[in-house]
Design a protein around this nucleic acid. Sequence first.
DNA 1: TAGACCAATACGGTATACCATTTCAACCGT
DNA 2: ACGGTTGAAATGGTATACCGTATTGGTCTA
Lengths: 247, 247
Amino acid sequence: MQQTIARRARAGSPIENGRVDSVARVYQELRALIVSGQLPPGARISERAVVARMGSSRTPVRSALHRLHQEGFVASASRGGDQRLIVTPLTQKDGRELFLIVGHLEGLGAFEAASLPTARRRQIVRHLRQLNRTLGVEARRKRSPTRVFELDEQFHRAFVDDVAGPRLQSLHHSFKPQIERYVRLYVNILLDTLPTSVKEHEAIIAAIESGDAKGAQRAVETNWRNAAGRLASVISEHGERGSWHFT
Amino acid sequence: MQQTIARRARAGSPIENGRVDSVARVYQELRALIVSGQLPPGARISERAVVARMGSSRTPVRSALHRLHQEGFVASASRGGDQRLIVTPLTQKDGRELFLIVGHLEGLGAFEAASLPTARRRQIVRHLRQLNRTLGVEARRKRSPTRVFELDEQFHRAFVDDVAGPRLQSLHHSFKPQIERYVRLYVNILLDTLPTSVKEHEAIIAAIESGDAKGAQRAVETNWRNAAGRLASVISEHGERGSWHFT
DNA sequence: TAGACCAATACGGTATACCATTTCAACCGT
DNA sequence: ACGGTTGAAATGGTATACCGTATTGGTCTA
Protein backbone atom coordinates (compact mmCIF):
# COMPACT_ATOMS: atom_id res chain seq x y z
CA MET A 1 0.00 0.00 0.00
CA GLN A 2 2.81 2.33 0.80
CA GLN A 3 4.20 1.23 -2.48
CA THR A 4 1.13 2.65 -4.13
CA ILE A 5 1.57 5.95 -2.37
CA ALA A 6 5.22 6.15 -3.30
CA ARG A 7 4.53 5.23 -6.89
CA ARG A 8 1.85 7.84 -7.11
CA ALA A 9 4.20 10.44 -5.60
CA ARG A 10 6.76 9.56 -8.22
CA ALA A 11 4.25 9.76 -11.00
CA GLY A 12 3.32 13.20 -9.77
CA SER A 13 6.92 14.21 -10.13
CA PRO A 14 7.67 16.56 -13.04
CA ILE A 15 9.18 14.49 -15.78
CA GLU A 16 10.75 11.63 -13.87
CA ASN A 17 10.34 8.43 -15.75
CA GLY A 18 10.51 6.28 -12.66
CA ARG A 19 13.49 5.55 -10.41
CA VAL A 20 14.18 8.26 -7.83
CA ASP A 21 17.19 6.70 -6.15
CA SER A 22 15.79 6.79 -2.66
CA VAL A 23 19.07 5.81 -1.11
CA ALA A 24 20.78 9.00 -2.28
CA ARG A 25 17.88 11.10 -1.11
CA VAL A 26 17.72 9.48 2.30
CA TYR A 27 21.48 9.67 2.62
CA GLN A 28 21.59 13.36 1.88
CA GLU A 29 18.63 14.28 4.05
CA LEU A 30 19.91 12.30 6.98
CA ARG A 31 23.40 13.68 6.60
CA ALA A 32 22.04 17.20 6.50
CA LEU A 33 20.09 16.58 9.69
CA ILE A 34 23.20 15.28 11.40
CA VAL A 35 25.53 18.00 10.21
CA SER A 36 23.09 20.73 11.10
CA GLY A 37 22.69 19.26 14.55
CA GLN A 38 18.97 18.67 14.28
CA LEU A 39 19.82 15.09 15.00
CA PRO A 40 22.00 15.68 18.06
CA PRO A 41 25.17 13.67 18.74
CA GLY A 42 24.38 10.46 20.52
CA ALA A 43 20.80 10.35 19.31
CA ARG A 44 19.58 6.89 18.49
CA ILE A 45 18.65 6.16 14.93
CA SER A 46 16.21 3.41 14.11
CA GLU A 47 15.67 2.21 10.61
CA ARG A 48 11.94 2.22 11.00
CA ALA A 49 11.92 5.72 12.44
CA VAL A 50 13.80 6.96 9.41
CA VAL A 51 11.37 5.14 7.16
CA ALA A 52 8.47 6.79 8.94
CA ARG A 53 10.04 10.21 8.62
CA MET A 54 11.32 10.04 5.08
CA GLY A 55 8.73 7.78 3.56
CA SER A 56 10.72 5.13 1.83
CA SER A 57 11.17 1.51 2.69
CA ARG A 58 13.73 -0.18 4.86
CA THR A 59 15.98 -1.43 2.09
CA PRO A 60 17.17 1.93 0.76
CA VAL A 61 17.20 3.40 4.26
CA ARG A 62 19.38 0.55 5.29
CA SER A 63 21.80 1.28 2.48
CA ALA A 64 21.95 4.94 3.37
CA LEU A 65 22.61 4.15 7.02
CA HIS A 66 25.29 1.71 6.00
CA ARG A 67 27.05 4.42 4.09
CA LEU A 68 26.69 6.98 6.84
CA HIS A 69 28.07 4.41 9.22
CA GLN A 70 31.12 3.73 7.16
CA GLU A 71 31.79 7.40 6.62
CA GLY A 72 31.61 8.04 10.33
CA PHE A 73 28.46 10.12 10.62
CA VAL A 74 26.77 7.42 12.63
CA ALA A 75 28.41 4.90 14.90
CA SER A 76 27.29 1.57 16.25
CA ALA A 77 26.58 1.52 19.93
CA SER A 78 26.82 -2.25 19.54
CA ARG A 79 25.25 -3.34 22.77
CA GLY A 80 24.47 -7.02 22.66
CA GLY A 81 24.22 -8.79 19.36
CA ASP A 82 22.59 -6.11 17.25
CA GLN A 83 24.41 -3.02 16.35
CA ARG A 84 22.20 -0.10 17.20
CA LEU A 85 23.14 3.07 15.49
CA ILE A 86 23.62 6.47 17.06
CA VAL A 87 24.70 9.81 15.70
CA THR A 88 28.46 9.89 16.18
CA PRO A 89 29.33 11.87 19.32
CA LEU A 90 31.59 14.89 19.03
CA THR A 91 34.64 14.33 21.20
CA GLN A 92 37.94 16.09 21.50
CA LYS A 93 39.93 13.06 20.42
CA ASP A 94 37.76 12.40 17.41
CA GLY A 95 37.85 16.04 16.40
CA ARG A 96 41.61 16.12 16.56
CA GLU A 97 41.94 12.98 14.47
CA LEU A 98 39.47 14.28 11.93
CA PHE A 99 41.29 17.59 11.53
CA LEU A 100 44.68 15.93 11.20
CA ILE A 101 43.47 13.44 8.60
CA VAL A 102 41.85 16.12 6.51
CA GLY A 103 45.00 18.19 6.87
CA HIS A 104 47.18 15.45 5.48
CA LEU A 105 44.72 14.62 2.72
CA GLU A 106 44.57 18.25 1.67
CA GLY A 107 48.32 18.36 2.07
CA LEU A 108 48.53 15.84 -0.73
CA GLY A 109 46.19 17.99 -2.77
CA ALA A 110 48.31 21.07 -2.18
CA PHE A 111 51.44 19.18 -3.13
CA GLU A 112 49.92 18.16 -6.42
CA ALA A 113 48.50 21.60 -7.05
CA ALA A 114 51.91 23.18 -6.55
CA SER A 115 53.39 20.68 -8.99
CA LEU A 116 51.11 21.82 -11.80
CA PRO A 117 52.40 23.77 -14.80
CA THR A 118 52.66 27.50 -14.20
CA ALA A 119 49.59 28.48 -16.17
CA ARG A 120 47.12 26.39 -14.23
CA ARG A 121 48.81 27.28 -10.99
CA ARG A 122 48.34 30.96 -11.70
CA GLN A 123 44.69 30.34 -12.37
CA ILE A 124 44.21 28.53 -9.10
CA VAL A 125 46.17 31.13 -7.20
CA ARG A 126 44.02 33.92 -8.55
CA HIS A 127 40.92 32.10 -7.40
CA LEU A 128 42.42 31.41 -3.98
CA ARG A 129 43.48 35.01 -3.51
CA GLN A 130 40.02 36.26 -4.30
CA LEU A 131 38.38 33.86 -1.87
CA ASN A 132 40.83 34.64 0.89
CA ARG A 133 40.39 38.37 0.42
CA THR A 134 36.65 38.00 0.81
CA LEU A 135 37.25 35.84 3.82
CA GLY A 136 39.38 38.58 5.36
CA VAL A 137 36.65 41.13 4.82
CA GLU A 138 34.05 38.80 6.25
CA ALA A 139 36.29 38.23 9.25
CA ARG A 140 36.45 41.93 10.11
CA ARG A 141 32.70 42.39 10.27
CA LYS A 142 31.85 39.58 12.60
CA ARG A 143 28.64 38.05 11.43
CA SER A 144 27.13 35.48 9.12
CA PRO A 145 29.11 32.41 10.18
CA THR A 146 27.39 30.49 7.42
CA ARG A 147 29.03 32.67 4.82
CA VAL A 148 32.38 32.12 6.49
CA PHE A 149 31.98 28.35 6.38
CA GLU A 150 31.14 28.51 2.77
CA LEU A 151 34.12 30.64 1.90
CA ASP A 152 36.55 28.50 3.85
CA GLU A 153 35.06 25.43 2.26
CA GLN A 154 35.45 26.92 -1.19
CA PHE A 155 39.01 27.92 -0.45
CA HIS A 156 40.03 24.42 0.45
CA ARG A 157 38.07 22.90 -2.39
CA ALA A 158 39.76 25.23 -4.83
CA PHE A 159 43.12 23.51 -4.61
CA VAL A 160 41.85 19.99 -3.95
CA ASP A 161 39.01 19.41 -6.35
CA ASP A 162 40.84 20.66 -9.39
CA VAL A 163 43.74 18.36 -8.90
CA ALA A 164 42.56 15.34 -6.97
CA GLY A 165 41.61 12.01 -8.48
CA PRO A 166 38.29 10.38 -7.73
CA ARG A 167 39.47 8.64 -4.59
CA LEU A 168 40.90 11.71 -2.92
CA GLN A 169 37.85 13.70 -3.88
CA SER A 170 35.48 11.19 -2.45
CA LEU A 171 37.45 11.10 0.80
CA HIS A 172 37.45 14.85 0.96
CA HIS A 173 33.74 15.05 0.29
CA SER A 174 32.95 12.62 3.03
CA PHE A 175 35.28 14.16 5.61
CA LYS A 176 34.61 17.84 5.16
CA PRO A 177 30.98 17.70 6.35
CA GLN A 178 32.15 15.95 9.48
CA ILE A 179 34.56 18.77 10.12
CA GLU A 180 31.63 21.08 9.67
CA ARG A 181 29.85 19.39 12.56
CA TYR A 182 32.63 20.45 14.89
CA VAL A 183 32.95 23.91 13.48
CA ARG A 184 29.24 24.60 13.74
CA LEU A 185 29.24 23.55 17.35
CA TYR A 186 31.77 26.18 18.34
CA VAL A 187 31.18 28.87 15.77
CA ASN A 188 31.22 31.97 17.85
CA ILE A 189 34.45 31.08 19.59
CA LEU A 190 36.21 29.79 16.50
CA LEU A 191 35.24 32.93 14.64
CA ASP A 192 37.75 34.93 16.65
CA THR A 193 40.62 32.94 15.25
CA LEU A 194 39.72 33.77 11.68
CA PRO A 195 42.45 36.38 11.10
CA THR A 196 45.05 33.76 11.98
CA SER A 197 43.48 31.39 9.49
CA VAL A 198 43.53 34.04 6.81
CA LYS A 199 47.25 34.58 7.39
CA GLU A 200 47.90 30.87 7.17
CA HIS A 201 45.99 30.78 3.92
CA GLU A 202 48.36 33.42 2.56
CA ALA A 203 51.26 31.08 3.18
CA ILE A 204 49.47 28.33 1.27
CA ILE A 205 48.81 30.61 -1.65
CA ALA A 206 52.38 31.83 -1.76
CA ALA A 207 53.77 28.30 -1.78
CA ILE A 208 51.47 27.16 -4.56
CA GLU A 209 52.26 30.28 -6.55
CA SER A 210 55.99 29.65 -6.40
CA GLY A 211 55.56 25.98 -7.20
CA ASP A 212 56.97 24.91 -3.85
CA ALA A 213 55.18 21.59 -3.47
CA LYS A 214 56.61 20.57 -0.12
CA GLY A 215 56.09 24.07 1.21
CA ALA A 216 52.47 24.08 0.12
CA GLN A 217 51.91 20.72 1.74
CA ARG A 218 53.53 21.88 4.96
CA ALA A 219 51.51 25.09 4.99
CA VAL A 220 48.23 23.24 4.62
CA GLU A 221 49.12 20.71 7.26
CA THR A 222 50.17 23.47 9.62
CA ASN A 223 46.90 25.27 9.02
CA TRP A 224 44.94 22.19 10.01
CA ARG A 225 47.19 21.27 12.88
CA ASN A 226 46.71 24.73 14.32
CA ALA A 227 42.99 24.49 13.76
CA ALA A 228 43.00 21.19 15.63
CA GLY A 229 44.82 22.88 18.46
CA ARG A 230 42.36 25.74 18.55
CA LEU A 231 39.45 23.32 18.57
CA ALA A 232 41.04 21.28 21.33
CA SER A 233 41.55 24.26 23.58
CA VAL A 234 38.01 25.44 22.94
CA ILE A 235 36.61 22.04 23.76
CA SER A 236 38.63 21.54 26.90
CA GLU A 237 37.59 24.99 28.00
CA HIS A 238 33.89 24.62 27.30
CA GLY A 239 33.48 20.91 27.81
CA GLU A 240 32.48 18.38 25.24
CA ARG A 241 29.15 19.70 24.14
CA GLY A 242 28.40 16.84 21.87
CA SER A 243 29.19 13.75 23.84
CA TRP A 244 25.99 13.22 25.74
CA HIS A 245 23.09 11.14 24.66
CA PHE A 246 19.64 12.59 24.36
CA THR A 247 17.41 9.58 24.26
CA MET B 1 12.84 -22.64 2.23
CA GLN B 2 16.33 -21.44 1.76
CA GLN B 3 15.81 -19.81 5.07
CA THR B 4 15.29 -23.21 6.61
CA ILE B 5 18.47 -24.49 5.10
CA ALA B 6 20.41 -21.52 6.36
CA ARG B 7 18.96 -21.86 9.83
CA ARG B 8 19.84 -25.51 9.92
CA ALA B 9 23.37 -24.71 8.80
CA ARG B 10 23.65 -22.22 11.59
CA ALA B 11 22.38 -24.67 14.14
CA GLY B 12 24.99 -27.12 12.97
CA SER B 13 27.61 -24.50 13.72
CA PRO B 14 29.69 -25.17 16.83
CA ILE B 15 28.37 -22.96 19.57
CA GLU B 16 26.77 -20.12 17.62
CA ASN B 17 23.58 -19.02 19.24
CA GLY B 18 22.11 -17.55 16.10
CA ARG B 19 23.06 -14.53 13.97
CA VAL B 20 26.02 -15.12 11.67
CA ASP B 21 26.32 -11.63 10.20
CA SER B 22 26.15 -12.68 6.60
CA VAL B 23 27.14 -9.24 5.40
CA ALA B 24 30.56 -9.47 7.04
CA ARG B 25 31.11 -12.94 5.66
CA VAL B 26 30.09 -12.00 2.15
CA TYR B 27 32.14 -8.83 2.36
CA GLN B 28 35.27 -10.65 3.38
CA GLU B 29 34.89 -13.51 0.92
CA LEU B 30 34.22 -11.18 -1.95
CA ARG B 31 37.07 -8.90 -1.00
CA ALA B 32 39.41 -11.85 -0.81
CA LEU B 33 38.32 -12.97 -4.26
CA ILE B 34 38.97 -9.51 -5.66
CA VAL B 35 42.31 -8.97 -3.95
CA SER B 36 43.57 -12.39 -4.95
CA GLY B 37 42.55 -11.72 -8.52
CA GLN B 38 40.18 -14.66 -8.78
CA LEU B 39 37.62 -12.05 -9.67
CA PRO B 40 39.59 -10.23 -12.34
CA PRO B 41 39.52 -6.45 -12.73
CA GLY B 42 36.61 -5.37 -14.87
CA ALA B 43 34.58 -8.47 -14.17
CA ARG B 44 30.91 -7.79 -13.79
CA ILE B 45 29.37 -8.52 -10.45
CA SER B 46 25.70 -9.28 -10.20
CA GLU B 47 23.93 -9.43 -6.90
CA ARG B 48 22.15 -12.59 -7.84
CA ALA B 49 25.35 -14.27 -8.98
CA VAL B 50 26.94 -13.54 -5.64
CA VAL B 51 23.87 -14.90 -3.89
CA ALA B 52 24.10 -18.05 -5.94
CA ARG B 53 27.76 -18.46 -5.12
CA MET B 54 27.79 -17.56 -1.45
CA GLY B 55 24.36 -18.78 -0.46
CA SER B 56 22.81 -15.86 1.28
CA SER B 57 20.03 -13.56 0.19
CA ARG B 58 20.16 -10.34 -1.73
CA THR B 59 19.83 -8.00 1.21
CA PRO B 60 23.11 -8.79 2.97
CA VAL B 61 24.86 -9.22 -0.36
CA ARG B 62 23.62 -5.81 -1.29
CA SER B 63 25.08 -4.33 1.89
CA ALA B 64 28.41 -6.00 1.32
CA LEU B 65 28.54 -4.74 -2.25
CA HIS B 66 27.64 -1.28 -1.08
CA ARG B 67 30.58 -1.29 1.26
CA LEU B 68 32.98 -2.67 -1.32
CA HIS B 69 31.75 -0.01 -3.67
CA GLN B 70 32.40 2.82 -1.26
CA GLU B 71 35.82 1.49 -0.37
CA GLY B 72 36.74 1.29 -4.01
CA PHE B 73 37.03 -2.44 -4.56
CA VAL B 74 34.13 -2.37 -6.97
CA ALA B 75 33.05 0.48 -9.20
CA SER B 76 29.81 1.32 -10.88
CA ALA B 77 29.84 1.06 -14.62
CA SER B 78 26.68 3.15 -14.41
CA ARG B 79 25.31 2.45 -17.83
CA GLY B 80 21.80 3.76 -18.05
CA GLY B 81 19.75 4.22 -14.94
CA ASP B 82 21.02 1.29 -12.92
CA GLN B 83 24.49 1.20 -11.60
CA ARG B 84 25.97 -2.11 -12.59
CA LEU B 85 28.97 -3.09 -10.59
CA ILE B 86 32.34 -4.26 -11.84
CA VAL B 87 35.56 -5.13 -10.11
CA THR B 88 37.55 -1.90 -10.08
CA PRO B 89 40.05 -1.94 -12.92
CA LEU B 90 43.73 -1.53 -12.13
CA THR B 91 45.00 1.51 -13.96
CA GLN B 92 48.17 3.51 -13.72
CA LYS B 93 46.39 6.66 -12.60
CA ASP B 94 44.39 4.89 -9.95
CA GLY B 95 47.44 3.06 -8.67
CA ARG B 96 49.36 6.28 -8.36
CA GLU B 97 46.57 7.99 -6.47
CA LEU B 98 46.16 5.02 -4.18
CA PHE B 99 49.84 4.90 -3.33
CA LEU B 100 50.04 8.63 -2.69
CA ILE B 101 46.98 8.65 -0.45
CA VAL B 102 48.24 5.77 1.61
CA GLY B 103 51.61 7.47 1.78
CA HIS B 104 50.14 10.62 3.23
CA LEU B 105 47.89 8.73 5.60
CA GLU B 106 50.81 6.72 6.88
CA GLY B 107 52.82 9.94 6.96
CA LEU B 108 50.40 11.17 9.57
CA GLY B 109 50.85 7.92 11.47
CA ALA B 110 54.62 8.26 11.36
CA PHE B 111 54.41 11.85 12.53
CA GLU B 112 52.39 10.81 15.53
CA ALA B 113 54.60 7.83 16.22
CA ALA B 114 57.69 10.01 16.25
CA SER B 115 55.95 12.35 18.67
CA LEU B 116 55.47 9.63 21.25
CA PRO B 117 57.44 9.55 24.50
CA THR B 118 60.87 7.97 24.22
CA ALA B 119 59.98 4.69 25.87
CA ARG B 120 57.20 3.72 23.50
CA ARG B 121 59.19 4.98 20.55
CA ARG B 122 62.06 2.69 21.46
CA GLN B 123 59.64 -0.20 21.65
CA ILE B 124 58.25 0.53 18.21
CA VAL B 125 61.69 1.06 16.75
CA ARG B 126 62.87 -2.30 18.03
CA HIS B 127 59.92 -3.98 16.39
CA LEU B 128 60.48 -2.10 13.14
CA ARG B 129 64.17 -2.96 13.03
CA GLN B 130 63.46 -6.62 13.49
CA LEU B 131 60.88 -6.67 10.72
CA ASN B 132 63.08 -4.74 8.34
CA ARG B 133 66.02 -7.02 9.03
CA THR B 134 63.92 -10.05 8.16
CA LEU B 135 62.72 -8.25 5.09
CA GLY B 136 66.30 -7.66 4.02
CA VAL B 137 67.11 -11.34 4.40
CA GLU B 138 64.00 -12.33 2.51
CA ALA B 139 64.98 -9.89 -0.23
CA ARG B 140 68.34 -11.53 -0.81
CA ARG B 141 66.94 -14.99 -1.37
CA LYS B 142 64.37 -14.18 -3.99
CA ARG B 143 61.32 -16.25 -3.37
CA SER B 144 58.08 -16.44 -1.39
CA PRO B 145 56.55 -13.13 -2.42
CA THR B 146 53.71 -13.85 -0.04
CA ARG B 147 56.08 -13.69 2.88
CA VAL B 148 57.44 -10.40 1.60
CA PHE B 149 53.98 -8.87 1.38
CA GLU B 150 53.26 -9.94 4.86
CA LEU B 151 56.46 -8.47 6.24
CA ASP B 152 56.02 -5.17 4.46
CA GLU B 153 52.44 -5.04 5.62
CA GLN B 154 53.52 -5.70 9.20
CA PHE B 155 56.22 -3.06 8.97
CA HIS B 156 53.79 -0.37 7.97
CA ARG B 157 51.18 -1.50 10.43
CA ALA B 158 53.73 -1.36 13.21
CA PHE B 159 53.90 2.40 13.31
CA VAL B 160 50.32 3.11 12.23
CA ASP B 161 48.13 0.77 14.22
CA ASP B 162 49.73 1.51 17.55
CA VAL B 163 49.23 5.21 17.25
CA ALA B 164 46.26 5.82 14.99
CA GLY B 165 42.75 6.58 16.11
CA PRO B 166 39.81 4.56 14.86
CA ARG B 167 39.25 6.66 11.76
CA LEU B 168 42.81 6.49 10.52
CA GLN B 169 42.92 2.79 11.24
CA SER B 170 39.77 2.11 9.34
CA LEU B 171 41.05 4.08 6.36
CA HIS B 172 44.32 2.22 6.47
CA HIS B 173 42.57 -1.12 6.69
CA SER B 174 40.44 -0.39 3.70
CA PHE B 175 43.22 1.02 1.55
CA LYS B 176 46.00 -1.44 2.17
CA PRO B 177 44.25 -4.41 0.52
CA GLN B 178 43.71 -2.29 -2.55
CA ILE B 179 47.41 -1.59 -2.67
CA GLU B 180 47.89 -5.32 -2.42
CA ARG B 181 45.93 -5.78 -5.64
CA TYR B 182 48.49 -3.75 -7.52
CA VAL B 183 51.45 -5.31 -5.82
CA ARG B 184 50.25 -8.83 -6.49
CA LEU B 185 49.81 -8.05 -10.13
CA TYR B 186 53.43 -7.12 -10.62
CA VAL B 187 55.15 -9.15 -7.95
CA ASN B 188 58.11 -10.53 -9.78
CA ILE B 189 59.13 -7.19 -11.18
CA LEU B 190 58.51 -5.25 -8.00
CA LEU B 191 60.50 -7.78 -6.05
CA ASP B 192 63.70 -6.47 -7.63
CA THR B 193 63.24 -3.09 -6.02
CA LEU B 194 63.10 -4.54 -2.54
CA PRO B 195 66.60 -3.53 -1.46
CA THR B 196 65.71 0.10 -2.18
CA SER B 197 62.61 -0.24 -0.08
CA VAL B 198 64.61 -1.72 2.77
CA LYS B 199 66.95 1.26 2.68
CA GLU B 200 64.03 3.67 2.72
CA HIS B 201 62.64 1.83 5.70
CA GLU B 202 65.89 2.48 7.51
CA ALA B 203 65.37 6.19 7.09
CA ILE B 204 61.89 5.88 8.57
CA ILE B 205 63.19 3.97 11.54
CA ALA B 206 65.97 6.46 12.18
CA ALA B 207 63.60 9.41 12.11
CA ILE B 208 61.15 7.78 14.50
CA GLU B 209 63.99 6.79 16.79
CA SER B 210 65.29 10.32 17.07
CA GLY B 211 61.81 11.74 17.53
CA ASP B 212 61.97 13.71 14.31
CA ALA B 213 58.28 13.85 13.49
CA LYS B 214 58.52 15.84 10.27
CA GLY B 215 61.45 13.73 9.14
CA ALA B 216 59.55 10.52 9.78
CA GLN B 217 56.57 11.81 7.88
CA ARG B 218 58.76 12.87 4.96
CA ALA B 219 60.54 9.54 4.93
CA VAL B 220 57.29 7.59 4.75
CA GLU B 221 55.87 9.81 2.07
CA THR B 222 59.04 9.50 0.06
CA ASN B 223 58.93 5.74 0.38
CA TRP B 224 55.43 5.65 -1.06
CA ARG B 225 56.07 8.26 -3.69
CA ASN B 226 59.01 6.21 -4.92
CA ALA B 227 56.91 3.06 -4.83
CA ALA B 228 54.29 4.86 -6.92
CA GLY B 229 57.00 5.80 -9.38
CA ARG B 230 58.28 2.25 -9.58
CA LEU B 231 54.77 0.94 -10.12
CA ALA B 232 54.12 3.53 -12.81
CA SER B 233 57.21 2.62 -14.75
CA VAL B 234 56.43 -1.06 -14.47
CA ILE B 235 52.90 -0.52 -15.69
CA SER B 236 53.85 1.70 -18.59
CA GLU B 237 56.45 -0.86 -19.58
CA HIS B 238 54.23 -3.90 -19.35
CA GLY B 239 50.90 -2.36 -20.17
CA GLU B 240 47.91 -2.12 -17.92
CA ARG B 241 47.27 -5.74 -17.16
CA GLY B 242 44.18 -5.06 -15.17
CA SER B 243 42.15 -2.75 -17.30
CA TRP B 244 40.42 -5.16 -19.61
CA HIS B 245 37.10 -6.71 -19.02
CA PHE B 246 36.66 -10.44 -18.94
CA THR B 247 32.97 -10.92 -19.17
C1' DT C 1 24.37 -11.33 -45.61
C1' DA C 2 23.79 -7.31 -42.85
C1' DG C 3 20.95 -4.57 -40.22
C1' DA C 4 16.85 -3.55 -37.73
C1' DC C 5 13.17 -4.92 -34.79
C1' DC C 6 11.04 -7.60 -31.14
C1' DA C 7 10.43 -10.80 -27.39
C1' DA C 8 12.50 -13.18 -23.50
C1' DT C 9 15.11 -12.33 -19.67
C1' DA C 10 18.59 -10.70 -16.59
C1' DC C 11 19.26 -7.18 -13.40
C1' DG C 12 19.03 -3.54 -10.00
C1' DG C 13 15.70 -0.94 -7.05
C1' DT C 14 12.10 -1.15 -3.85
C1' DA C 15 8.73 -2.87 -0.62
C1' DT C 16 7.51 -6.01 2.72
C1' DA C 17 6.95 -10.33 5.43
C1' DC C 18 9.10 -13.06 8.92
C1' DC C 19 12.36 -14.29 12.62
C1' DA C 20 15.32 -13.89 16.83
C1' DT C 21 16.81 -10.93 20.22
C1' DT C 22 16.69 -7.21 23.06
C1' DT C 23 14.31 -3.71 25.61
C1' DC C 24 10.96 -1.89 28.39
C1' DA C 25 7.25 -1.65 31.34
C1' DA C 26 3.34 -3.36 33.64
C1' DC C 27 2.28 -6.54 37.11
C1' DC C 28 2.72 -9.62 40.82
C1' DG C 29 4.70 -11.27 45.05
C1' DT C 30 7.08 -10.36 49.13
C1' DA D 1 6.73 0.14 48.46
C1' DC D 2 10.26 -2.22 46.14
C1' DG D 3 12.32 -5.65 43.32
C1' DG D 4 11.99 -9.36 40.29
C1' DT D 5 9.43 -11.69 36.43
C1' DT D 6 7.24 -12.02 32.31
C1' DG D 7 5.20 -10.72 28.09
C1' DA D 8 4.44 -7.23 24.55
C1' DA D 9 6.55 -4.04 21.50
C1' DA D 10 10.54 -2.54 19.11
C1' DT D 11 14.55 -3.35 16.51
C1' DG D 12 17.85 -5.23 13.44
C1' DG D 13 18.82 -9.16 10.23
C1' DT D 14 17.31 -11.87 6.50
C1' DA D 15 14.62 -13.66 2.68
C1' DT D 16 11.82 -12.84 -1.07
C1' DA D 17 8.22 -10.95 -4.21
C1' DC D 18 7.38 -7.46 -7.55
C1' DC D 19 8.39 -3.64 -10.79
C1' DG D 20 10.42 -1.24 -14.61
C1' DT D 21 14.30 -0.88 -17.39
C1' DA D 22 18.16 -2.44 -20.09
C1' DT D 23 20.33 -6.07 -22.47
C1' DT D 24 20.60 -9.70 -25.37
C1' DG D 25 19.85 -13.00 -28.71
C1' DG D 26 17.17 -14.41 -32.41
C1' DT D 27 14.44 -13.76 -36.36
C1' DC D 28 12.70 -11.35 -40.13
C1' DT D 29 13.33 -8.25 -43.84
C1' DA D 30 15.74 -5.52 -47.31
